[in-house]
Computed example of a mutant assay.
Amino acid sequence: MALRVTFVAAARSSPLLAERFEDDRPLDGAGWEEVLRAAGGLLPLAAAELRYCSPTPRSRATGDALGYAPLVQLALRECDMGRWRGMTLGEAMAREPEAVDAWLADPRSAPHGGESLLGLITRVGGWLDTRPGEADGSIVAVAEPSVIRAALVYALKAPPATYWNLDVRPLSTTTVTGRAGHWNLRFDGAA
């Protein structure tokens, strides 16, 4: 018997290339339209015993719009990007190319003065491992794609560099099942 944690990626607040580190902007018009289109398929997740979300405005708005009434979890916040907060990757690269290269190459580095990638993965994994729940219980968590990527790296015990190869799209769902320290990625497809 296993706990089931389904992550729902927050709807977007900007086009992909305009995304900023630790973006506090609310959902944009396209994000609201995406939530409305996807709601039918995501509403059943509101039946989960526990419902959580990242503290970002778009995660909270996505969870509320889907009827989850999620509880904000600080451990599901995005990576602390220090002085790069609010910048796009391109802007950070233009100002500090060597620092960005170091950050992308070494999961323990935090040249921006914030949190390392390894720190993010460990923090999110710690949250996952401490979820309360009964066997066969279910949890839904609306989170930023970066947080979901960190959870997957942790759950699969994959090398931290795997983080850069995971693509989590807005309003996609990802489910892990198991218990602390023993997680499996679950694929649900059409019968």
Rank of each mutant, 00 (worst) to 15 (best):
V147Q: 01
S138C: 08
R123E: 13
R149F: 10
R131F: 00
R123Y: 07
G137Q: 08
I148Q: 04
A110M: 03
V142K: 02
G119Y: 06
G119T: 07
H112T: 00
T130M: 05
A150W: 06
I121T: 09
G125F: 08
L118W: 06
S109Q: 13
P159C: 02
P132H: 11
R123V: 14
L117R: 15
I139L: 06
I148A: 09
G125S: 06
H112D: 15
V140Y: 09
G133K: 06
A158Q: 11
A135E: 13
L118E: 15
L156W: 10
A151I: 07
K157Y: 00
E134M: 05
E144S: 12
G125D: 05
P132Y: 02
H112R: 00
A135I: 02
A143G: 06
T130G: 12
R131T: 13
G126P: 05
T130E: 14
R123A: 13
R131Y: 01
L120W: 03
D136V: 02
L128Y: 09
L152I: 04
S138F: 01
G114M: 06
S146M: 08
D136I: 00
H112Q: 14
I121R: 08
A141H: 01
S109W: 01
T130K: 10
E134S: 09
L156V: 05
E115R: 00
A155D: 08
Y154M: 02
L117V: 01
E144V: 09
A151R: 11
G125H: 14
L156A: 15
S146A: 13
G114E: 05
A143M: 01
G119P: 05
L120G: 09
I148N: 08
A143E: 05
A158T: 08
T122Y: 04
V142I: 12
G114T: 01
S138W: 00
L117P: 01
S138P: 02
Y154L: 04
G126I: 14
D136L: 12
P111E: 11
K157S: 14
S146Y: 00
G126L: 10
A110F: 01
I139Q: 04
L117F: 07
V153A: 07
V140L: 03
A151K: 11
D136N: 13
V147F: 10
P111S: 11
A110G: 04
S116N: 00
T122W: 03
T122R: 15
E144A: 12
L118M: 15
E134P: 08
I121Y: 01
A110W: 01
E144D: 15
G137E: 11
G137P: 03
P159T: 07
R149N: 14
G113P: 15
E144Y: 01
P132L: 13
S116A: 15
E134V: 13
S116K: 00
D129P: 04
I121M: 08
A110V: 04
D136H: 15
S116I: 10
P145Q: 07
I148G: 11
